[in-house]
Write a protein that binds this DNA or RNA. Sequence first.
DNA 1: CTGAAAGCGCTAACAA
DNA 2: TTGTTAGCGCTTTCAG
Lengths: 335, 335
Amino acid sequence: MITLKELAKKLNVSISTVSKALNDSSEISEETIKRVKEVAEIYNYTPNKVALSLKNSKTKTIGVIIPNILNHFFAKVLYGIEKEASKLGYSLITCISNELYDKEVNSLNLLANGSVDGFIMSIAEETQIHQKSDHFKAIIDRKLPIVMFDRTSEKIDCDKVIIDDFQATYKVTKHLLEEGRQNIVLINNIEELNVGKLRTKGFLQAIADNVSYKNEPIVVSTSKADDLETAIDAIFDTHKAVDGIIAIDNVSGVIALNKAQKRGVSIPETLSIIGFSDENVLQFTTPKLSTVSQHSQEIGATSVRLLVDRLESKEKLKQTTKVIDVSLHLRGTTK
Amino acid sequence: MITLKELAKKLNVSISTVSKALNDSSEISEETIKRVKEVAEIYNYTPNKVALSLKNSKTKTIGVIIPNILNHFFAKVLYGIEKEASKLGYSLITCISNELYDKEVNSLNLLANGSVDGFIMSIAEETQIHQKSDHFKAIIDRKLPIVMFDRTSEKIDCDKVIIDDFQATYKVTKHLLEEGRQNIVLINNIEELNVGKLRTKGFLQAIADNVSYKNEPIVVSTSKADDLETAIDAIFDTHKAVDGIIAIDNVSGVIALNKAQKRGVSIPETLSIIGFSDENVLQFTTPKLSTVSQHSQEIGATSVRLLVDRLESKEKLKQTTKVIDVSLHLRGTTK
DNA sequence: CTGAAAGCGCTAACAA
DNA sequence: TTGTTAGCGCTTTCAG
């Protein structure tokens, strides 16, 4: 990497002249600017990012902490974050907390030493179970803004991007009720997470609001099941009359569809299934799974915009919570 | 963030004393070291990463360029990279090329300005189709080492981590031949990529080496197919006698399994299927897909080790190519 | 219009 | 044992 100093020597001018010329300063003559730029071009000069960061106390870099990159939802959010960040001239330092509290604390502290201007993150499962939040406070105290998406904490006052989880399942349930389903099972594979709790609430409320629904709402929690597939398969034994399944996580919907088909259940005639999966699973099933689309990419992009707005605004902005719309994509597994 | 300077003032000593004390220099008295460390602890001092990077001309950061984060193979490699890098004390700046040449060039240049010590990457599809490689040369000329994984370029002399693609399909094909299959179809959804070409070669060679195989080898290229599912479904019409399918990409194996099942083909009795999918798809099918495991996480970890070795070694190391073993996981879709 | 110098936070050679 | 100083690469104020 060639530096200003070296350019200056080659040009027989001072360092500051080169710097100013390259920044089109009005202090420098047209003539000199041209000369400097030519030579800079030849030697392929680019300003050293680290020096700039030190000088400006700004890195133009966002720290991203993802609980689990193998989960397609998070992968897609990251995709959205990367796209928007790169559009706005920001780089990404990515850490993966692997759902662990310690790793999350670590990543946060590691990057809070000047490496990034702010954070975009989703809370690790372990952190959420144990309701930890002091580490977030510590970061915010150090004037590093955080944007939380999907898994957020009420204890922390920061920008948030979420979907309306309650509303999502409320809508889904309502749809199944309108189909005339009377034995709806909700599969909850994420009960420790707040989003899991909210989605369950939406389901229960929708059923409570429906006077013509005869049965008790059924919630099957599978999180602790050693084997998700077995647990889901068992639903068909335990609840013989099941005619509607809502799967509020990434994968359970597809599994339920598979198990139902193996048992010869005709879908969507006698059973409707709606999942929270991303489109990537669609190519794996026939009929195609009906899903709640969480607009994952949009969640990522919005998070970036929120953070960058805060970083680049002069005034102190108020903390906001953006709610991203969900949409119901009815495909082959619903009527 | 508190700085050395501020600590020094609070302690009434010089900046360098503080610095040395914190680094346990033998020049400083036990006494002072203790005093300094206490105060540093109180104010939660951590050295500024940017300043260190500038000082040392080392960022302890690796630039990672992934063609497509939504592809589970790459997500898993990234997972492996992150885990190993973090173990070795390195951070990751992640870019996603989205399979585009321009984006790849851009990311490379963006990070080559001092942001990272080296790169780990897999080549974008577009780059590989057009056989571009000058941008890699430019980076290496700037003394930034690159480790390429999976999709590599023969034109570039750098560390590489690959699987033995030829051997992989050779083994797979041999297995199907030993099962007695006589009408094997290879589905190639990645024919523009070198790995696609190599895997195809391995298939062809295995068949050529087998004297008792009666028919011509069949390769179905689907890359340009608007609809992968339709293309795969059509195989069963075009090649009625098909009794073995090898899918050399991430998803085609599962799709083939689905389509076959819909047509009532009994698996693995009359048809064997082997795919290159990762384990994540297993929960979506019954029987479980037999696969070639590429040890994606290991690919990532090895890439990191290769790069870090080079970065931290005094001598000039020779460029090496690590070949990661593949293993054949026979499950329900093979005999 | 151009240059010298200070400073961002840190380390290390050298001086005291 | 502690302090002074220079320098990593850059921008910017102030002098010339």
